[in-house]
Design a protein around this nucleic acid. Structure first.
Lengths: 235, 235
DNA sequence: AAAAACAACTTGTATTTACAAGTTAAAAAA
DNA sequence: TTTTTTAACTTGTAAATACAAGTTGTTTTT
């Protein structure tokens, strides 16, 4: 029917249930065999879905016991694959678009290597400022190759997740990525944007996100105010 | 024979080969079917091993192509599971023990919840300063529960990986973990220890590492000089 | 010579089956 | 009543098999 593998469907279902609170911290998910019968799949398939949830840090597994739902992170889990907005959980997250998507040439000294296709397609550039509980927390600069994305510069991004727009309108899924983290002394502009206190440093993240489309990677530079929040990750 | 699962053995073999340079960046690993015949396992087992290598960021896979060995990170991959020393790769890494392992009570305001067994066992405390290319880069504070570890306070840790000692002498394996990251303004002591330039912030990492022994977690607080290096991670 | 088709690889997904090992609660024995 | 044993769960590891789908180089056709 669909093109989406079965294990991925089950993953999406369970993920939604956990985030929406159908299960709460400490709850056991239905056993693997139950999930098999309910969703009409075999155990390896179910286990594949559960492994993905473990990788996301949404559950832990214990032999003999079951799959235990973890407490939603108090922090901001942008180390996980899901991307920024969806990983924050229930906390209120507002987004300001500082620079609407525009088509540019790739900057000189771009910190990542680009494929030929990416290089010759030019890039789409945008800047966002994201708030948690009305306080600015993320400032991010995004570069994406100008392929597969008709009319994206006309779209409204206000308070919408970039990743959700890519998925819904362009069938682009994030499959993984790599990143570097540093602590930096902020520039004057960053201090203003993120409402940084005097002397407060900024957490700098440089990410490359791989997608299901070959030669389509998302490059993000993130400046993070770690005064009240932290970056969280499991491994 | 052993207690170690087959997929883990293959993982260790391939991991060693990649780190030692048997394969270099861009090389293809033997195909899954080849690995099957060579190591006398079935494909699901081989694939399990390869998945673990992907999770570590040592290889990427491409359908129709094969398993591609990634370039050893120029940075310091302590986001990966392998622990600090083994993830740095070939770069020279020296370790100073600032505080030899001693038995203490758990500190008040310990940032993690402890199980009863951990709580009542007391903790082993140690501090290290680690150098890359003769420059101090990590300062880390470690707390481990005082179980399974006979005579550990008598051991020499100079230039040895804590994780290797735990594995070789106590059969303790790191199975995963969680962590938080922040950018902090360093204290005077940190500035001295890490040779921080004026105004240079420090990357702060708080980690809980799960092991194969129940109720045995390693708690580390790391201060990282991100002036010349960065923390690297895949997901 | 260039383009299209094909064959021989590769990894991705999925089923079925089996047993090992850890957990828990009920049943049996002391 | 307390302790021990057992049975019925749970997840972990592993084999054998099948087909789908992406990649690559060769062969065939145009």
């Amino acid at each position: 029917m669909d093109n989406i593998p079965q294990y991925r469907k089950l993953y999406e279902i369970l993920r939604k249930h956990i985030i929406k609170g159908v299960y709460v911290e400490g709850d056991l998910l239905p056993s693997e065999n139950e999930l098999c019968t309910v969703h009409n799949m075999t155990r390896p398939t179910v286990r594949h879905a559960l492994e993905t949830l473990v990788k996301d840090g949404l559950i832990t597994k214990k032999q003999g016991k079951g799959s235990i739902v973890r407490k939603p992170s108090q922090n901001i889990g942008i180390l996980s694959i899901a991307g920024t907005a969806s990983a924050v959980g229930v906390r209120y997250l507002k987004t300001d678009i500082l620079q609407k998507p525009v088509i540019k040439t790739w900057p000189d000294n771009f910190p990542f290597e680009l494929s030929e296709l990416e290089q010759e397609s030019g890039c789409i550039y945008m800047e966002r400022l994201r708030y948690v509980d009305e306080e600015p927390v993320f400032y991010d600069i995004n570069h994406l190759p100008n392929i597969y994305l008709p009319r994206i510069t006309q779209r409204s991004f206000e308070n919408k997740s970039l990743f959700e727009i890519l998925r819904k309108h362009y069938q682009i899924e994030i499959m993984g990525g790599e990143q570097q983290l540093k602590a930096l002394k902020p520039t004057v502009r960053l201090r203003q944007l993120l409402h940084l206190k005097p002397g407060q440093p900024v957490l700098y993240i440089e990410r490359k996100l791989h997608t299901n489309k070959p030669d389509f990677n998302i490059y993000s530079t993130i400046y993070f105010n770690s005064d009240k929040h932290a970056i969280f990750g499991t491994f």
